[in-house]
Design a protein around this nucleic acid. Sequence first.
DNA 1: TTGACATCGTTGCATTCGCAACGAAATATG
DNA 2: CATATTTCGTTGCGAATGCAACGATGTCAA
Lengths: 153, 153
Amino acid sequence: MFEGCSMSDSLPDFDLDRYLPYRFAVIATRLSNELSTQYREKYGISIAEWRVLVNLAYSDSTSVRDIEKRVSMEKSKVSRAVSRLQESGYLTKEIDSNDRRLLQLELTPKGAKLVGDLVPLAQAYQRQLEAQLMDKVPGLQTALDELMKDADL
Amino acid sequence: MFEGCSMSDSLPDFDLDRYLPYRFAVIATRLSNELSTQYREKYGISIAEWRVLVNLAYSDSTSVRDIEKRVSMEKSKVSRAVSRLQESGYLTKEIDSNDRRLLQLELTPKGAKLVGDLVPLAQAYQRQLEAQLMDKVPGLQTALDELMKDADL
DNA sequence: TTGACATCGTTGCATTCGCAACGAAATATG
DNA sequence: CATATTTCGTTGCGAATGCAACGATGTCAA
């Protein structure tokens, strides 16, 4: 009841363990790291690069801007991830002929093969999380839906 | 059904929008930034520093190690945040007399006053999130409880 | 008691990050 | 048309990050 209050100075009550920004930060870091260590070691891919690859494979995003919005990553981060992936031969950059400011990104066969290797790892991890969460999955997902809603304003 | 499958190459089905590590990363970044811009501008405090302050105020953590575990931050990150806060006069560092490897961190009155200013901002943001989530809050929190469980293994 | 081992906090270093500024290209305005 | 404004992707730069190594201290066992 009087948690966080000492004798002389009185701080407002505050429950860090229920505080959502903090909880999300802790869990997000943990989930990202647990998985990314797996594919970093095997394939030398960073988290940013993973996101770019998956977006190219599973969404209509073809430009840096599209990915930036879809994944809410800084465009400089996307740009550098794309460059590294291109140097490694996982994707190609071409200038969009309709709007020459835009890039047309495309997975190479080598890139598609890499995604084919990476996705099963991700799926296995997702299943592991869902097994841990059990019946709490639907409630979690709908809450996440709500929080993702106005992500692109 | 056949999403993510093009004619020649066949990628495994994968739904990025339900993928938990990705969703947590996006939301966590968004929540942290929205709040931290508020107090960065007003008080010049970073996210790492905020977490150290709140832990000192609202938990029994007094050493760098305690905070490191509680908040799952790298110890170097904690160490540097602590140093900055000390330089600004928000906390004091003393060597633990029982175990001289440990630090005894303590908020100064100035630091306690800062926390008293910061926490209402955090609470207002929490209320805003809960208002958006409505009845989805309990389901979310129990799911987060589950995911935080083995955080300290 | 002594020496091997573990723990705590700091620091060096290479990498990554976010932000702002930039050139090129497209669009809007006059 | 001319030119002001906006958009896209890249890059420079200072700050932050993660990781390993380190000195200092504590613990454990021979």
